[in-house]
């Protein structure tokens, strides 16, 4: 059981890295959908007692993260006609190095956090931190608004993994909140992206500064 959990967590990390090095938006969305499945399976392997709420959480996660959101995002890129991240400010090798630094820091910090080792699956905390930081990496280096949505999703997924450490203590509460949060956030951003595109005929987030008054 524990082994399965660790494999799932590693795969989550791998998908994060894959997003970092991919500049094609549709591939990014597919990777995030795969990550959604992984996250959906994670509650079964995170050591908490398996009950109805685990199943609900799992199904809900998979439904939202790997079916609904990818559809919405795919729709958005179709509408806004963007295919790939243009002129990435950092090349793939640089992104990988940044990702490695994020993972290194996450694993270094996690051992020093109180109670970090207390969960059944010790990898939960470092992987969630790494996922969070890699989300920030995407948010700070990409320019297309839709890429930013992907980064935001990665960040949210990190928080979701962190929430799993509390799954035994506070059932459902944290998770559902996170899911709703993501849903609403992504919807809004998708709409905003669409609007920006209509108004400015570009998706370059640098030009958002022109949206004054």
């Amino acid at each position: 059981m524990e082994r399965t959990g660790e494999v799932l967590l590693l795969l989550v990390l791998m998908t994060d890295f894959a997003v970092l090095v991919t500049d094609r938006l549709s591939t990014c969305i597919r990777i995030m959908a795969a990550q959604g499945v992984l996250l959906g399976l994670l509650p079964f392997a995170s050591g908490a007692a398996i009950g109805v709420h685990t199943v609900v959480l799992s199904l809900g996660t998979i439904a939202i993260k790997s079916i609904v959101l990818p559809r919405v995002l795919s729709w958005a890129i179709r509408e806004a006609e963007v295919r790939r991240e243009l002129e990435p400010s950092i090349g793939p090798i640089g992104m990988v190095v940044l990702g490695l630094v994020a993972v290194g820091v996450a694993f270094g910090v996690a051992t020093r956090l109180p109670h970090a080792g207390a969960t059944v699956l010790p990898g939960l905390v470092p992987v969630s931190l790494a996922s969070l930081m890699m989300g920030f990496v995407v948010l700070t280096t990409r320019r297309k608004a839709l890429s930013l949505v992907i980064g935001y999703l990665m960040l949210e997924n990190g928080i979701y993994v962190f929430g799993l450490t509390l799954a035994g203590a506070i059932p459902l509460l944290v998770e559902m909140g996170v899911l709703l949060d993501v849903l609403v956030g992504v919807f809004i951003m998708g709409l905003v992206v669409f609007q920006i595109h209509r108004q400015l005929e570009t998706q370059d987030s640098r030009r958002l500064t022109e949206l004054r008054d």
Partner: peptide
């Protein structure tokens, strides 16, 4: 190289 580095990081933890 990054994969191997990840292997190292996981072990150093």
């Amino acid at each position: 190289a990054a994969l191997a580095a990840l292997g190292v990081i996981l072990r150093v933890r």
